[in-house]
């Protein structure tokens, strides 16, 4: 019995010292330039003034430039999107911002991952990022306890240790900064602008056309959170707009089931009377957003691509605002779009 007690004491001491040791670098991580915490502080400073929010995963973070939205549409917007953001995370952030801002419009990015992520079987960094963006420790703990299953807690501890160590590494490299000057109202352009996906030839597109099938294995919980977003916006008289952001033509050509995801969202949007735009179906997409210049990788817009896209987006939003038929610029669905693509024949 004495041995067991001593063992428990040692294990306890080990974790206590681990937490104490990690507290310093984690403090650095929380106070430093990381998008998440800086972003939470910035939003707190702007509280009471913001009326438009963009939510979504990395596609949205790299694509929607709030400053352009503000200038072109006369709004005061903020891009809340971040890597791997879950549907639950989107709902949580909408609720937080609506409680302290006169929110009029919310734009939610719609991707296949946002429907398929299942917290029972996998654990996403997105939940951790969302917790960090909530701005306060109790809110973060509360969110994590609801979003991450207890069997994934060691992973969470591991992630925080990694982040703390990352801060120490930055400090020794002389890269540690208290503020990220690159971040503008949540939009984070790439540091290195030179990376491009590169040109995709017609021959290559023909070769890869519909060769990969990625059936959406939708988790019911995500649909529930999406419905809660609809209900919340309706209750608070907030205009909700669903958007699927453009991905590279190489990606669009490769998958044979993008239409399935599209139909999910279109049905949900129609049932709730919410406009939905899939920019992969935009008639000018291939012309304006070529793989060669507009994309950094298969699914993310480059800084240059984001500048082009935001104009397309503003144009669509203005049409919607003026009561015009914004959908006239879009194909009906993916089969209709493919029918006009040279690589599909």
């Amino acid at each position: 019995m004495q041995s067991f007690k001593q063992t428990l004491k040692t294990i306890g001491c080990f974790f206590l010292i681990l937490i104490l040791v990690m507290a310093i670098p984690l403090g650095g991580y929380i106070c430093s330039e990381t998008y998440l915490h800086q972003d939470a502080r910035e939003r707190e400073e702007l509280a009471g003034t913001l009326d438009t929010f963009v939510l979504g995963a990395s596609h949205a973070m790299r694509a929607v430039i709030p400053e352009v939205l503000d200038e072109e549409m006369g709004v005061n917007s903020y891009n809340l999107a971040f890597n791997l953001m879950t549907m639950q995370g989107r709902l949580e952030l909408i609720k937080l911002e609506a409680s302290r801002n006169p929110v009029k419009t919310i734009i939610v990015e719609c991707s296949m991952d946002a429907l398929t992520y299942n917290p029972n079987t996998e654990v996403l960094k997105g939940d951790q990022y969302t917790a960090d963006r909530l701005g306060s420790f109790p809110k973060a703990i509360s969110y994590l306890s609801r979003s991450i299953r207890f069997w994934h807690y060691p992973w969470l501890l591991y992630r925080y240790i990694l982040m703390g160590c990352g801060t120490v590494e930055q400090f020794f490299k002389g890269e540690f900064r208290m503020r990220n000057v690159n971040q503008k109202k949540g939009y984070v352009p790439y540091y290195d602008e030179s990376v491009r996906l590169g040109n995709t030839s017609l021959k290559k597109l023909k070769k890869v056309y519909q060769t990969v099938s990625r059936r959406p294995n939708v988790w019911e919980g995500n649909l529930k959170y999406l419905q809660e977003i609809f209900d919340f916006c309706r209750e608070h008289e907030i205009d909700l707009i669903l958007v699927t952001l453009p991905i590279s033509e190489r990606y669009v050509a490769t998958y044979d089931n993008l239409n399935d995801t599209y139909l999910y969202y279109r049905k949900a949007a129609a049932e709730n009377g919410v406009p939905f735009f899939d920019f992969n179906l935009h008639r000018q997409k291939t012309e304006l957003l070529s793989d060669e210049t507009a994309f950094r990788d298969r699914s993310h817009l480059s800084n240059e691509g984001a500048k082009v896209f935001i104009k397309m987006f503003v144009k669509t939003l203005n049409k919607l605002k003026n009561g015009e038929d914004a959908l006239e610029d879009f194909y009906e669905d993916y089969p209709a779009m493919y029918a006009e693509q040279p690589y599909a024949h």
């Binding site: 001491c13 080990f14 040791v21 990690m22 240790i161 160590c165």
Partner: peptide, 18 residues
Amino acid sequence: PYLVRILIFVLMFIVILY
């Protein structure tokens, strides 16, 4: 000392993880 020994292994643990 006992606590320093644990500290050494905590640091080793962190390096292993990182």
